[in-house]
Nucleic acid binder design. Structure first.
Lengths: 144, 144
DNA sequence: TGCCTATCCTATCAAATCGATAGGGTAATA
DNA sequence: TATTACCCTATCGATTTGATAGGATAGGCA
Protein backbone atom coordinates (compact mmCIF):
# COMPACT_ATOMS: atom_id res chain seq x y z
CA UNK A 1 0.00 0.00 0.00
CA UNK A 2 1.29 3.41 -0.97
CA UNK A 3 1.74 5.63 2.06
CA UNK A 4 -0.05 8.94 2.24
CA UNK A 5 3.31 10.55 2.60
CA UNK A 6 4.25 9.40 -0.88
CA UNK A 7 0.84 10.18 -2.27
CA UNK A 8 0.87 13.72 -0.93
CA UNK A 9 4.47 14.20 -1.94
CA UNK A 10 3.72 13.23 -5.50
CA UNK A 11 0.73 15.51 -5.65
CA UNK A 12 2.72 18.39 -4.26
CA UNK A 13 5.53 17.86 -6.74
CA UNK A 14 3.08 17.66 -9.60
CA UNK A 15 1.40 20.83 -8.49
CA UNK A 16 4.72 22.64 -8.29
CA UNK A 17 5.52 21.39 -11.76
CA UNK A 18 2.43 23.10 -13.14
CA UNK A 19 3.56 26.47 -11.84
CA UNK A 20 4.98 28.74 -14.46
CA UNK A 21 8.38 30.09 -13.62
CA UNK A 22 9.95 29.07 -10.34
CA UNK A 23 7.99 31.25 -8.00
CA UNK A 24 7.82 29.82 -4.49
CA UNK A 25 4.47 28.37 -3.47
CA UNK A 26 3.56 28.36 0.19
CA UNK A 27 2.73 25.19 2.08
CA UNK A 28 -0.73 26.50 2.74
CA UNK A 29 -1.46 27.04 -0.90
CA UNK A 30 -0.35 23.57 -1.87
CA UNK A 31 -2.22 21.99 1.01
CA UNK A 32 -5.45 23.73 0.12
CA UNK A 33 -5.19 22.94 -3.56
CA UNK A 34 -4.50 19.26 -2.98
CA UNK A 35 -6.71 18.72 0.08
CA UNK A 36 -3.82 17.78 2.31
CA UNK A 37 -3.25 18.30 6.00
CA UNK A 38 -1.05 21.35 6.12
CA UNK A 39 1.18 20.23 8.94
CA UNK A 40 1.68 16.77 7.53
CA UNK A 41 2.54 18.23 4.14
CA UNK A 42 5.03 20.49 5.87
CA UNK A 43 7.13 17.56 6.99
CA UNK A 44 6.96 15.96 3.58
CA UNK A 45 8.15 19.06 1.79
CA UNK A 46 10.91 19.34 4.32
CA UNK A 47 12.32 15.94 3.42
CA UNK A 48 11.96 16.71 -0.27
CA UNK A 49 14.04 19.81 0.27
CA UNK A 50 16.65 18.00 2.31
CA UNK A 51 17.12 15.44 -0.43
CA UNK A 52 17.61 18.18 -2.98
CA UNK A 53 14.39 17.84 -4.90
CA UNK A 54 12.98 21.15 -3.77
CA UNK A 55 14.24 24.57 -2.89
CA UNK A 56 12.66 26.83 -0.32
CA UNK A 57 12.44 30.47 0.50
CA UNK A 58 11.60 31.88 3.90
CA UNK A 59 9.72 34.99 4.88
CA UNK A 60 6.98 36.82 3.09
CA UNK A 61 6.34 35.52 -0.40
CA UNK A 62 8.28 32.42 0.49
CA UNK A 63 7.49 28.78 -0.14
CA UNK A 64 8.77 25.81 -2.07
CA UNK A 65 9.80 25.50 -5.66
CA UNK A 66 11.31 22.96 -8.01
CA UNK A 67 15.03 23.18 -8.47
CA UNK A 68 15.27 21.05 -11.57
CA UNK A 69 13.18 20.76 -14.68
CA UNK A 70 10.30 18.29 -14.21
CA UNK A 71 11.53 16.14 -17.06
CA UNK A 72 14.83 15.68 -15.24
CA UNK A 73 13.19 14.38 -12.08
CA UNK A 74 12.92 10.62 -12.28
CA UNK A 75 10.19 8.76 -10.45
CA UNK A 76 12.83 6.31 -9.33
CA UNK A 77 14.41 9.02 -7.23
CA UNK A 78 11.14 10.42 -5.96
CA UNK A 79 9.77 7.04 -4.94
CA UNK A 80 12.96 6.06 -3.14
CA UNK A 81 12.96 9.31 -1.20
CA UNK A 82 9.30 9.23 -0.25
CA UNK A 83 8.39 5.56 -0.06
CA UNK A 84 11.78 4.00 0.56
CA UNK A 85 12.80 0.71 -1.04
CA UNK A 86 11.10 -0.12 -4.33
CA UNK A 87 11.55 -3.83 -3.79
CA UNK A 88 8.91 -5.60 -1.75
CA UNK A 89 11.53 -7.64 0.07
CA UNK A 90 14.91 -6.42 1.35
CA UNK A 91 16.76 -9.37 -0.20
CA UNK A 92 15.96 -8.13 -3.72
CA UNK A 93 16.53 -4.47 -3.03
CA UNK A 94 19.25 -2.68 -4.96
CA UNK A 95 19.66 0.28 -2.62
CA UNK A 96 18.47 -1.17 0.66
CA UNK A 97 19.71 -4.76 0.44
CA UNK A 98 19.42 -6.90 3.50
CA UNK A 99 19.74 -10.62 3.89
CA UNK A 100 16.81 -12.71 5.09
CA UNK A 101 17.77 -14.44 8.30
CA UNK A 102 15.32 -17.28 7.76
CA UNK A 103 16.30 -18.05 4.20
CA UNK A 104 19.24 -20.44 3.74
CA UNK A 105 19.73 -19.81 0.03
CA UNK A 106 18.52 -16.86 -1.99
CA UNK A 107 19.15 -18.50 -5.32
CA UNK A 108 16.66 -21.24 -4.62
CA UNK A 109 14.12 -19.13 -2.75
CA UNK A 110 10.76 -18.93 -4.47
CA UNK A 111 9.91 -15.61 -2.89
CA UNK A 112 13.21 -14.16 -3.99
CA UNK A 113 12.66 -15.33 -7.54
CA UNK A 114 9.20 -13.85 -7.80
CA UNK A 115 9.95 -10.57 -6.08
CA UNK A 116 12.97 -10.05 -8.28
CA UNK A 117 10.70 -9.93 -11.28
CA UNK A 118 8.29 -7.59 -9.55
CA UNK A 119 11.09 -5.26 -8.60
CA UNK A 120 12.43 -5.16 -12.14
CA UNK A 121 9.08 -4.45 -13.73
CA UNK A 122 8.21 -1.78 -11.19
CA UNK A 123 11.59 -0.17 -11.60
CA UNK A 124 11.03 -0.13 -15.33
CA UNK A 125 7.87 1.91 -14.85
CA UNK A 126 9.57 4.40 -12.57
CA UNK A 127 12.49 4.74 -14.96
CA UNK A 128 10.13 5.56 -17.79
CA UNK A 129 8.34 8.28 -15.89
CA UNK A 130 9.58 11.72 -14.96
CA UNK A 131 7.67 14.35 -13.07
CA UNK A 132 6.86 15.94 -16.40
CA UNK A 133 5.00 12.79 -17.45
CA UNK A 134 2.70 13.08 -14.45
CA UNK A 135 1.53 16.57 -15.16
CA UNK A 136 -1.89 16.05 -16.76
CA UNK A 137 -2.00 18.79 -19.34
CA UNK A 138 0.19 21.80 -19.86
CA UNK A 139 -2.60 24.10 -20.89
CA UNK A 140 -4.56 23.50 -17.75
CA UNK A 141 -7.23 25.78 -16.38
CA UNK A 142 -6.02 26.71 -12.90
CA UNK A 143 -9.51 27.80 -11.95
CA UNK A 144 -11.06 24.36 -12.03
CA UNK B 1 6.71 -4.22 1.86
CA UNK B 2 5.69 -7.84 1.47
CA UNK B 3 4.08 -9.13 4.64
CA UNK B 4 5.51 -12.17 6.35
CA UNK B 5 2.14 -13.77 5.94
CA UNK B 6 2.57 -13.69 2.18
CA UNK B 7 6.19 -14.64 2.36
CA UNK B 8 5.51 -17.67 4.53
CA UNK B 9 2.47 -18.61 2.50
CA UNK B 10 4.48 -18.61 -0.71
CA UNK B 11 7.21 -20.70 0.86
CA UNK B 12 4.71 -23.19 2.21
CA UNK B 13 2.99 -23.51 -1.15
CA UNK B 14 6.30 -23.98 -2.90
CA UNK B 15 7.30 -26.64 -0.42
CA UNK B 16 4.03 -28.48 -0.91
CA UNK B 17 4.58 -28.30 -4.65
CA UNK B 18 7.85 -30.15 -4.32
CA UNK B 19 6.18 -33.08 -2.60
CA UNK B 20 5.64 -36.08 -4.81
CA UNK B 21 2.08 -37.31 -4.86
CA UNK B 22 -0.47 -35.48 -2.80
CA UNK B 23 0.39 -36.82 0.61
CA UNK B 24 -0.61 -34.46 3.40
CA UNK B 25 2.25 -32.61 5.09
CA UNK B 26 1.82 -31.52 8.68
CA UNK B 27 2.09 -27.91 9.75
CA UNK B 28 5.02 -28.79 11.94
CA UNK B 29 6.95 -30.31 9.09
CA UNK B 30 6.44 -27.31 6.86
CA UNK B 31 7.27 -24.90 9.66
CA UNK B 32 10.52 -26.64 10.47
CA UNK B 33 11.61 -26.95 6.88
CA UNK B 34 10.97 -23.28 6.14
CA UNK B 35 11.98 -21.79 9.49
CA UNK B 36 8.55 -20.41 10.20
CA UNK B 37 6.68 -19.89 13.45
CA UNK B 38 4.42 -22.90 13.63
CA UNK B 39 1.39 -21.14 15.05
CA UNK B 40 1.61 -18.27 12.64
CA UNK B 41 1.92 -20.65 9.73
CA UNK B 42 -1.13 -22.47 10.99
CA UNK B 43 -3.34 -19.45 10.47
CA UNK B 44 -1.89 -18.86 7.03
CA UNK B 45 -2.54 -22.39 5.88
CA UNK B 46 -6.04 -22.07 7.22
CA UNK B 47 -6.82 -19.13 4.97
CA UNK B 48 -5.24 -20.91 2.03
CA UNK B 49 -7.54 -23.84 2.63
CA UNK B 50 -10.60 -21.64 3.03
CA UNK B 51 -9.93 -20.00 -0.29
CA UNK B 52 -9.66 -23.35 -1.99
CA UNK B 53 -5.94 -23.39 -2.66
CA UNK B 54 -5.20 -26.18 -0.22
CA UNK B 55 -6.89 -29.31 1.07
CA UNK B 56 -6.45 -30.66 4.55
CA UNK B 57 -6.73 -33.92 6.39
CA UNK B 58 -7.25 -34.27 10.11
CA UNK B 59 -6.00 -36.84 12.56
CA UNK B 60 -2.86 -38.92 12.50
CA UNK B 61 -1.00 -38.67 9.23
CA UNK B 62 -2.95 -35.57 8.43
CA UNK B 63 -1.78 -32.23 7.11
CA UNK B 64 -2.12 -29.97 4.10
CA UNK B 65 -1.81 -30.75 0.43
CA UNK B 66 -2.25 -29.02 -2.90
CA UNK B 67 -5.59 -29.55 -4.57
CA UNK B 68 -4.59 -28.40 -8.02
CA UNK B 69 -1.52 -28.89 -10.15
CA UNK B 70 1.13 -26.25 -9.38
CA UNK B 71 1.11 -25.04 -12.96
CA UNK B 72 -2.59 -24.28 -12.64
CA UNK B 73 -2.11 -22.05 -9.60
CA UNK B 74 -1.57 -18.49 -10.72
CA UNK B 75 0.43 -16.06 -8.64
CA UNK B 76 -2.29 -13.52 -9.25
CA UNK B 77 -4.66 -15.61 -7.19
CA UNK B 78 -2.12 -16.44 -4.52
CA UNK B 79 -1.04 -12.85 -4.05
CA UNK B 80 -4.59 -11.56 -3.83
CA UNK B 81 -5.45 -14.15 -1.21
CA UNK B 82 -2.36 -13.60 0.90
CA UNK B 83 -1.37 -10.00 0.38
CA UNK B 84 -4.67 -8.48 -0.66
CA UNK B 85 -4.91 -5.84 -3.40
CA UNK B 86 -2.13 -5.88 -5.94
CA UNK B 87 -2.55 -2.19 -6.67
CA UNK B 88 -0.71 0.21 -4.40
CA UNK B 89 -3.69 2.52 -4.26
CA UNK B 90 -7.36 1.55 -3.98
CA UNK B 91 -8.39 3.83 -6.83
CA UNK B 92 -6.47 1.73 -9.35
CA UNK B 93 -7.43 -1.63 -7.92
CA UNK B 94 -9.37 -4.03 -10.10
CA UNK B 95 -10.74 -6.23 -7.34
CA UNK B 96 -10.71 -3.84 -4.40
CA UNK B 97 -11.60 -0.56 -6.02
CA UNK B 98 -12.29 2.37 -3.78
CA UNK B 99 -12.53 6.02 -4.59
CA UNK B 100 -10.13 8.52 -3.06
CA UNK B 101 -12.06 11.02 -1.00
CA UNK B 102 -9.45 13.73 -1.41
CA UNK B 103 -9.06 13.42 -5.16
CA UNK B 104 -11.53 15.43 -7.27
CA UNK B 105 -10.72 13.76 -10.57
CA UNK B 106 -9.03 10.43 -11.14
CA UNK B 107 -8.37 11.05 -14.79
CA UNK B 108 -6.14 14.01 -14.03
CA UNK B 109 -4.54 12.63 -10.89
CA UNK B 110 -0.81 12.14 -11.18
CA UNK B 111 -0.73 9.44 -8.54
CA UNK B 112 -3.49 7.57 -10.29
CA UNK B 113 -1.68 7.72 -13.59
CA UNK B 114 1.58 6.42 -12.19
CA UNK B 115 0.11 3.70 -10.01
CA UNK B 116 -1.97 2.44 -12.89
CA UNK B 117 1.21 1.61 -14.74
CA UNK B 118 2.73 -0.03 -11.70
CA UNK B 119 -0.34 -2.14 -11.18
CA UNK B 120 -0.35 -3.29 -14.80
CA UNK B 121 3.29 -4.24 -14.84
CA UNK B 122 3.08 -6.05 -11.53
CA UNK B 123 -0.01 -7.88 -12.64
CA UNK B 124 1.82 -8.92 -15.77
CA UNK B 125 4.50 -10.60 -13.65
CA UNK B 126 1.99 -12.45 -11.53
CA UNK B 127 0.09 -13.58 -14.60
CA UNK B 128 3.23 -15.02 -16.07
CA UNK B 129 4.09 -17.02 -12.97
CA UNK B 130 2.42 -20.11 -11.62
CA UNK B 131 3.39 -22.01 -8.53
CA UNK B 132 5.23 -24.43 -10.78
CA UNK B 133 7.51 -21.62 -11.91
CA UNK B 134 8.59 -20.93 -8.36
CA UNK B 135 9.75 -24.44 -7.60
CA UNK B 136 13.53 -24.15 -7.89
CA UNK B 137 15.15 -27.20 -9.37
CA UNK B 138 12.62 -29.43 -10.95
CA UNK B 139 13.61 -30.55 -14.42
CA UNK B 140 13.43 -27.14 -15.89
CA UNK B 141 11.47 -26.33 -18.97
CA UNK B 142 13.58 -24.07 -21.18
CA UNK B 143 10.54 -22.52 -22.83
CA UNK B 144 8.42 -20.08 -20.86
C1' DT C 1 14.77 48.66 14.13
C1' DG C 2 10.63 46.14 14.71
C1' DC C 3 6.85 43.50 12.95
C1' DC C 4 4.89 40.17 10.03
C1' DT C 5 5.41 36.08 7.48
C1' DA C 6 6.48 31.44 6.37
C1' DT C 7 9.80 27.92 6.74
C1' DC C 8 12.22 24.99 10.13
C1' DC C 9 12.39 21.56 13.78
C1' DT C 10 11.17 18.50 17.66
C1' DA C 11 8.00 16.15 20.39
C1' DT C 12 3.91 13.80 21.01
C1' DC C 13 -0.20 10.86 20.16
C1' DA C 14 -4.16 7.96 18.72
C1' DA C 15 -5.16 4.40 15.71
C1' DA C 16 -4.07 0.72 12.91
C1' DT C 17 -1.36 -3.09 11.56
C1' DC C 18 1.81 -6.89 12.12
C1' DG C 19 3.86 -10.89 13.75
C1' DA C 20 3.50 -13.96 17.14
C1' DT C 21 1.51 -16.73 20.95
C1' DA C 22 -1.92 -19.07 24.06
C1' DG C 23 -5.23 -22.34 24.80
C1' DG C 24 -8.57 -25.09 24.07
C1' DG C 25 -12.14 -27.56 20.61
C1' DT C 26 -12.96 -31.06 17.11
C1' DA C 27 -12.55 -34.65 13.82
C1' DA C 28 -10.05 -38.60 12.02
C1' DT C 29 -7.19 -42.51 12.48
C1' DA C 30 -5.02 -46.53 14.45
C1' DT D 1 -10.62 -45.05 23.00
C1' DA D 2 -6.41 -42.61 22.97
C1' DT D 3 -3.61 -40.03 20.12
C1' DT D 4 -2.78 -37.01 16.55
C1' DA D 5 -3.11 -32.84 14.06
C1' DC D 6 -6.15 -29.57 12.16
C1' DC D 7 -9.59 -25.90 13.67
C1' DC D 8 -10.79 -21.51 15.84
C1' DT D 9 -10.76 -17.37 18.77
C1' DA D 10 -8.62 -14.16 21.63
C1' DT D 11 -4.95 -11.51 23.02
C1' DC D 12 -0.57 -8.91 23.14
C1' DG D 13 3.72 -6.25 22.41
C1' DA D 14 6.04 -3.71 19.00
C1' DT D 15 6.08 -0.91 15.18
C1' DT D 16 4.31 2.22 11.81
C1' DT D 17 1.32 5.68 10.21
C1' DG D 18 -1.00 9.90 9.79
C1' DA D 19 -1.73 13.84 12.10
C1' DT D 20 -1.10 17.75 15.49
C1' DA D 21 1.14 21.14 18.76
C1' DG D 22 4.16 24.61 19.72
C1' DG D 23 7.72 27.20 19.31
C1' DA D 24 12.48 28.62 16.97
C1' DT D 25 14.53 30.85 13.15
C1' DA D 26 15.22 33.72 9.31
C1' DG D 27 13.65 36.70 5.40
C1' DG D 28 10.85 40.74 3.69
C1' DC D 29 9.36 45.27 4.39
C1' DA D 30 8.11 49.68 6.29
Amino acid sequence: MLSKKTKYGLKALTFLATQEGRQPVSIMEIAKHENISQKFLESILLTLRKTGLLGSKKGKGGGYYLIKDPKDISMTTVMRVLEGPIAMVPCVSLNFYERCNDCPDEASCSVHLLMLQVRDSTLEVFKNNTLADLVPSRKWNPES
